[in-house]
């Protein structure tokens, strides 16, 4: 096989995409705009990666996402389990949770800016707002999905509620929670970026906003590229750990 044939397709397609960008930015209808070329953007990205501010911003964004994510789990899992255990609680809270679940955190940014200012805490708050309702509903669904036969058997043997939760409710909720966690982890990062970009919370989002309003087109594109790389790493990391878990469960 020739050398060209051995290059993985994803590298070929990425290079092609960059080449297309380079050409589109140099000639053609959108070359008149201030769109930077691919080469300029990638060069700027490399420069940015050599600066400590970039890494600090990256750290802030990841920290906001991670802390918000952890808090959401801390709140949503017990809440979801409690709600899921009682049919009355489940139907009572369903509307409220469904309502807030579909409202994106970006909507409440103006109010959070007023209340908390453009701060780290505000970013964390937005992440929690964005994750907690969906996670709680997901957990509650999982708890409700427990095998009724198993539950009946346990009741027949007079097993207490703790045993029921431990051996019937939680195992059934586990797969639901796993799905929730997988979706939430990516969402947390997205919200952390939005909190910076729109709300001025520290991190890559704010850097992006400053680049754009400052007219630094190269840097704007470079940060967006960096966010894309970060997104790919996170989603592949989640996929990788999911495989690990499945492998572990299969053993």
């Amino acid at each position: 096989m020739s050398i060209a044939g051995r290059i993985p397709p994803w590298i070929v397609s990425m290079l092609l995409a960059l080449a297309f960008w380079q050409v589109a930015a140099s000639v053609g209808p959108i070359s008149d705009s201030s769109i930077p070329t691919a080469v300029d953007s990638v060069t700027t990205l490399v420069q940015l990666l050599g600066q400590s501010e970039t890494w600090i911003a990256l750290g802030q964004t990841v920290a906001i996402a991670a802390i918000g994510f952890a808090l959401s789990l801390l709140i949503a899992l017990p809440l979801g389990i409690l709600i899921g255990l009682s049919r009355f609680a489940f139907t009572s809270t369903k509307f409220v949770f469904d309502f807030f679940k579909v409202i994106p955190p970006i909507v409440i940014i103006p109010i959070t800016i007023l209340a908390l200012g453009p701060t780290f805490q505000m970013g964390v708050f937005l992440v929690v707002f964005g994750l907690v309702f969906a996670l709680a509903i997901q957990t509650a669904y999982g708890v409700r999905d427990a095998d009724p036969v198993l539950l009946d058997t346990m009741r027949a043997y007079r097993q207490g509620i703790v045993t029921q939760i431990r051996y019937a409710r939680l195992p059934s909720a586990a797969s639901f929670i796993a799905v929730g966690i997988r979706i939430s982890a990516t969402a947390a990062l997205v919200i952390a970026v939005v909190a910076g970009l729109i709300g001025g919370a520290p991190g890559l989002g704010r850097q992006l906003l400053l680049s754009q309003t400052g007219g630094l087109a190269d840097q704007t594109f470079a940060i967006v590229l960096l966010l894309g790389v970060l997104g790919v790493l996170v989603s592949h990391g989640i996929e990788w750990s999911r495989r690990k878990v499945i492998f572990w469960e299969d053993r």
Partner: peptide, 28 residues
Amino acid sequence: ARYVEPVVDFLRSIPAVATVPVFIVIFG
């Protein structure tokens, strides 16, 4: 698809809101 998917995968991994500044640069 083998050639397009990696690019799509990358582009969709950029947080949607973060693409807005890019479009502001291009379109005003």
